[in-house]
């Protein structure tokens, strides 16, 4: 490979991270999903929701306005906090949530910077790192409410990690690959994953709700008990970042969900190594699918109150674990009899 194509590839990779489906897309998607979450809740609750910021388009700029407000607020760092951890943890949390995206291809085109046949493993590894920083946040804050929030996060983390991995493993067994692209190609030639293994899809959905703190698992942030949970001591942009991170995680999870279960870029089946056909068109399909998954999950806020910690942990170790084990067994059975 000559030097010039290499530079072009690099630029493309950079654009991949920064523009599509990276940071800029994340920003747009998160802004829209927060707005949508509020609008959906408002609709169910017989009211308007955000409206007066940009009234013509239904208040869609509300989250941007909030972001601006967060950016210009005073940053308050309390005396007794562990300063470095306090400042760095939310940023790192956000960063790791974003970096995971590198290993989530949204089209058959794939980067040369990190060429890999193990994208599923890498992305999972990065996603699983994020909660560690959440716990750091709670520990650094020197606030009992944050501390309890961090403990809760820890408990839940441990009890839902295994079902999560098992549900992915069961898809890996079916598709016989550790690569998203191959997994999608498999689905394109056969059936979408959600039909092949609905149990795994269900487990994955539950874990998504839990990990990103949607209702009814809004346990670490339960405001009537823990004020703001982990982020009680935070203000300004740090708080904004902390608030946005679950949505970025939600975005990642939804991308993974649409790649593993919803047939990825189906019905787009061309396989061309070209930025437009290889990345942008299939990418848009995947992002739209992910967006729909996100919309369904944020709708739950309008229906459910939250579970108690012990109930969530108990169901994590019983129903959800059972479900995930069953999904693995289902996969094994399918592979034995179908292939």
């Amino acid at each position: 490979m000559g030097i010039i194509p290499l530079i072009l590839w690099l630029i493309q990779d950079l654009l991949y991270i920064i523009i599509f489906p990276g940071l800029v897309t994340i920003l747009v998607v998160v802004v829209i999903i927060i707005w949508l979450e509020r609008k959906i809740a408002a609709k169910v609750q017989m009211r308007f929701g955000p409206l007066w910021v940009s009234k013509k388009i239904g208040g869609a700029l509300q989250s941007l306005a909030d972001l601006l407000r967060y950016s210009f607020q005073e940053v308050i760092i309390p005396e007794k906090t562990d300063k470095w951890a306090f400042i760095l943890a939310p940023g790192l949390m956000f960063a790791f949530a974003t970096i995971a995206l590198i290993f989530i291809p949204v089209g058959p085109y794939y980067s040369v910077l990190f060429p890999s046949y193990y994208t599923i493993l890498f992305s999972l590894a990065l996603i699983i790192i994020t909660p560690i920083f959440a716990i750091t946040v709670g520990w650094a804050s020197d606030n009992k409410f944050s501390f309890i929030g961090a403990l809760r996060e820890g408990f839940l983390l441990i009890s839902y990690e295994i079902p999560f991995l098992l549900s992915v493993v069961s898809m890996v067994i079916i598709f016989h690959t550790y690569d998203y692209i191959n997994a999608v190609q498999n689905q394109l030639s056969f059936l979408p994953g959600i039909i092949l293994n609905p149990l795994a899809a269900l487990t994955m959905l539950i874990v998504m709700i839990r990990t990103t703190g949607r209702f009814p698992f809004d346990i670490t942030e339960a405001d009537s008990e823990l004020v703001m949970g982990l982020f009680t001591e935070y203000s300004a942009l740090f708080f904004g970042v902390g608030m946005a991170t679950p949505y970025v995680e939600l975005y990642n999870f939804s991308l993974i969900f649409s790649l593993l279960f919803l047939g990825g870029w189906w019905p787009f089946t061309l396989n061309v190594m070209n930025p437009v056909y290889g990345l942008i068109l299939p990418g848009i399909i995947v992002v739209v699918k992910a967006f729909i998954v996100m919309a369904v999950l944020v709708f739950l806020r309008a229906v459910y109150p939250r579970y108690r910690l012990d109930q969530a942990v108990r169901s994590g170790w019983s129903y959800v674990l059972l479900l995930s084990i069953l999904s693995v067994i289902l996969s094994v059975v399918e592979v034995m009899f179908l292939r």
Partner: peptide, 15 residues
């Protein structure tokens, strides 16, 4: 029930 309220017009607020 939640979905029903999501799709049917039901706004109570005075703008």
């Amino acid at each position: 029930k939640g979905f029903k309220y999501l799709v049917e017009p039901n706004r109570m607020t005075l703008d």
